Amino acid sequence: MESSLISLFLINCLLCGLLTLHLLARPIKNEHTRILGACYCLIALLNGLGYLSQTSDLWQFGSLRAVGATFMGPLYYHYFQSILGARNESVLLNGAHLIPGATIAIILFGGINQLMGWITPIILLSFWAYLAASVYRLLLAARSLQQTNKAQPMAYQWLKVLVAILTTNAISELLINWEISLGKPLAKSTFMHITAFLFLGINLVITYFALQRHPLWDWMLEHTQHSNPSKTKGGNSSEETKRLLKQFMQQLNNQQWFKEEAGFTIAMAARALNIPQRQLSEAINAETGLSYSQLMNKRRVEEAVTMMSEHPEKSLTAVMYEAGFRTKSSFNREFSRVTGKSPSEYQQLKHSIQSV
Rank of each mutant, 00 (worst) to 15 (best):
residue 176 I to Q: 06
residue 108 L to N: 09
residue 125 L to Q: 05
residue 88 N to H: 13
residue 282 E to L: 03
residue 66 A to I: 13
residue 215 P to E: 05
residue 79 Y to F: 09
residue 131 L to M: 04
residue 3 S to A: 11
residue 240 E to Y: 01
residue 301 V to F: 02
residue 281 S to D: 13
residue 101 G to N: 09
residue 175 L to M: 10
residue 337 R to H: 08
residue 176 I to A: 08
residue 11 I to K: 04
residue 32 H to L: 06
residue 133 A to V: 07
residue 227 S to P: 07
residue 183 G to F: 00
residue 191 F to D: 05
residue 227 S to R: 14
residue 277 Q to G: 05
residue 21 L to R: 05
residue 270 A to G: 06
residue 68 G to R: 07
residue 277 Q to N: 07
residue 215 P to H: 08
residue 195 T to H: 15
residue 54 Q to S: 13
residue 258 F to I: 06
residue 184 K to S: 13
residue 233 K to N: 13
residue 221 L to K: 07
residue 112 I to K: 08
residue 163 V to T: 02
residue 76 Y to H: 11
residue 331 F to G: 00
residue 222 E to L: 00
residue 73 G to V: 02
residue 179 E to F: 07
residue 261 E to Q: 10
residue 293 S to P: 06
residue 309 S to G: 12
residue 297 N to W: 10
residue 287 E to I: 03
residue 103 T to E: 15
residue 348 Q to P: 01
residue 88 N to Q: 13
residue 208 Y to V: 07
residue 275 I to C: 06
residue 307 M to I: 09
residue 154 M to E: 14
residue 97 H to E: 12
residue 82 S to N: 00
residue 347 Q to Y: 12
residue 210 A to I: 10
residue 91 V to Q: 13
residue 162 L to K: 09
residue 173 E to R: 08
residue 325 F to V: 01
residue 203 N to K: 00
residue 40 Y to I: 01
residue 114 Q to D: 15
residue 29 K to Y: 14
residue 17 G to H: 03
residue 186 L to G: 08
residue 162 L to W: 13
residue 326 R to S: 05
residue 207 T to G: 03
residue 86 A to F: 15
residue 245 L to W: 01
residue 289 G to Q: 07
residue 272 A to C: 09
residue 2 E to C: 08
residue 191 F to W: 12
residue 319 V to F: 04
residue 245 L to V: 04
residue 100 P to A: 05
residue 289 G to M: 00
residue 298 K to Y: 15
residue 155 A to N: 10
residue 265 T to Y: 12
residue 50 G to L: 04
residue 49 L to Y: 02
